[in-house]
Design a binder for these strands. Structure first.
Length: 490
RNA sequence: CGGGGUGUGGCGCAGUUGGUAGCGCACUUGACUGGGGGUCAAGGGGUCGCAAGUUCAAGUCUUGUCACUCCGACCA
């Protein structure tokens, strides 16, 4: 058990914060609501980026980069969009400082003609650009992704889950037809789902947002929702079908094959460093971080154990051999040959940092031609023969990946409850948490009242929404065409 | 923006009715150690968030101010 570490049961929020800080993922910075992502945390983000980026490219997308600053006037072009983001924008008003008696001050003479908004998302600047790129149906589709930082001036921030500045990717696509855009939005939701489940080992529920929860400016918001260990839902990714809203706002038209002038159809989709929070809260335990092998910067850590100098030489030599052998098949290995820390310390440290597999080698192992293998997910150890180690490691990494997913899926299944009455709804929400499948009358009023009374929101209307099962709304008693997913959320 | 909490060596904290700052971890050096966060010894490091005020004397009292954090409202 980790020293000086709060358990999930004691205080889930504190447990989360401590993991982030003590596992060296990130730290608070001098700037309110902004964090420093430390090398180990950034390495995990880079693993995520690499996997996602490959998926984007495999589905025909290319990367580009658009400006951080957006002219203020751009925001007023799409009414819903400005409404959604106006309250959380950082605004640049001046471009110069100067010295006076009190020190450095903003130079009042350096006021910008038009204020610049630090992007909270890039639809506006990108659609202003697409106007120049699109004339003909032959210019479509545009399938562009951007890796960037964005700023949303949130009231309350939490490491990774909600910071004022965060890293993300935002895909912005332009299409000739409605159908093609809708399919793109769904396709990218599929990409996110695949990534969440097969890389993060995090089961997600695919769905559609209700009007209340929809992205500002979208006709339809598709989302994946994950369930955290404290029973709260976390929106892990969104993909928006934007219709022609932005094309109309920025006047992006093209001549179709039929020689007709038409507005372009759009999508946008994104996931952020929030996924780091999701990853932590899905798998980690009271001994610290637990990483799925596919995203672990180090999949295997080798800890040499020795007393005398001769032992050190043989043991580290063996460690290097094993490392090289594992790396030959693409396994990411760290040989922790630091002479400044004791083995016990290293065990504890790597365990806390979530490395999936640990190999310990000491003089005993050299004699017996064995190693000690320890699994992070089950915290079990076994002594195993050096022969066939590589295959065993490969198998174990797979097994750990699968086991983490299975565990998370099992948790979600046991924390998904079908409820049929209002009392039951409140009881489950209060005492059990998790996803609640309940009938809803389809109105925003009901949704808002439920939120006001219980803090639960409709996470999504499931994509596999079963509209054959009719019933009555759990709150209003009015007719309902199917069950939707309620939960308290991050 | 409302409500709570906290600001004292790098980190976590203590500091009584005001009397000039201490503990644990970390750090440095050395020895012994080394299969789950070692032991012993000797060291280094703080104008107590900031600013005024009361006082012979302020970490401590008063006023103001700033920052961070937690719980809400808002959001990915």
């Amino acid at each position: 058990m980790a020293k000086n570490f709060t358990s999930r049961k004691e205080d889930y929020s504190q447990w989360y914060n401590e993991i982030v800080i003590k596992a060296d993922l990130a730290d608070y910075s001098a700037v309110r609501g902004s964090m420093v992502i430390k090398p180990y945390g950034y390495a995990i983000w880079e693993m995520m980026q690499a996997a996602l980026d490959k998926k984007f490219k495999d589905t025909g997308h290319v990367n580009a980069y658009f400006p951080l600053f957006i002219p203020k006037s751009f925001f007023s072009k799409e009414a819903k969009h400005v409404e959604g983001f106006a309250k959380e924008c950082a605004v640049v008003t001046h471009y110069r400082l100067k010295n006076d008696e009190t020190g450095v001050v903003v130079d009042p003479d350096a006021k910008l003609e038009e204020e610049l908004i630090v992007r909270p998302t890039s639809e506006t600047i990108i659609w202003d650009t697409y106007k120049k790129w699109v004339q003909s149906w032959r210019d479509l589709p545009i399938l562009v992704n951007q890796w960037a930082n964005v700023v949303r001036w949130e009231m309350r921030t939490r490491l990774f889950l909600r910071t004022s500045e965060f890293l993300w990717q935002e895909g912005h696509t332009a299409h000739a037809t409605r159908l093609e855009a809708e399919e793109e939005a769904k396709k990218m939701l599929g990409v996110y789902t695949d990534f969440a489940e097969n890389f993060m080992a995090m089961p997600v529920l695919q769905g559609i947002k209700t009007e209340n929860e929809r992205f500002a400016g979208a006709l339809e918001t598709y989302c994946i929702e994950a369930l955290m260990q404290d029973g709260k839902a976390l929106q892990a990714g969104t993909s928006h079908f934007l219709g022609q809203n932005f094309a109309k706002a920025f006047d992006v038209k093209f001549l179709s094959k039929e020689n007709k002038l038409e507005y372009v159809w759009a999508t946008s989709w994104g996931v952020s460093t929030r996924l780091m929070g999701a990853l932590i809260m899905t798998h980690s335990d009271d001994s610290g971080l637990v990483l799925p092998p596919k995203l672990a910067p180090f999949q295997v850590v080798i800890v040499p154990i020795y007393r005398k100098e001769e032992e050190k030489i043989t043991v580290i030599e063996k460690g290097k051999q094993i490392k090289a052998e594992l790396e030959r098949v693409g396994i990411r290995v760290k040989l922790d040959d630091r002479d400044t820390q004791k083995p016990g310390f290293k065990f504890a440290e790597w365990e806390f940092k979530g490395v999936p597999l640990r190999i310990a080698i000491g003089p005993r192992d050299i004699t017996n031609n064995t190693v000690e293998l320890a699994r992070r997910d089950t915290l079990t150890k076994s002594v195993t023969d050096m022969e066939g180690l590589r295959e065993q490691v490969l198998d174990l990494l797979d097994e750990i990946q699968n086991n983490l997913f299975a565990k998370a899926l099992d948790f979600r299944n046991t924390h998904t409850t079908v409820v049929n009455s209002w009392d039951e709804f409140k009881d489950v929400l209060e005492n059990k948490g998790g996803f609640i499948m309940a009938h809803w009358d389809g109105t925003s009023e009901t949704e808002e009242q439920i939120k006001a009374e219980t803090k639960a929101t409709i996470r999504s209307i499931p994509l596999d929404y079963d509209n054959s099962e009719e019933g009555v709304c759990v709150y209003s008693g009015k007719p309902s065409k199917g069950r939707v997913v309620f939960a308290k959320s991050y």
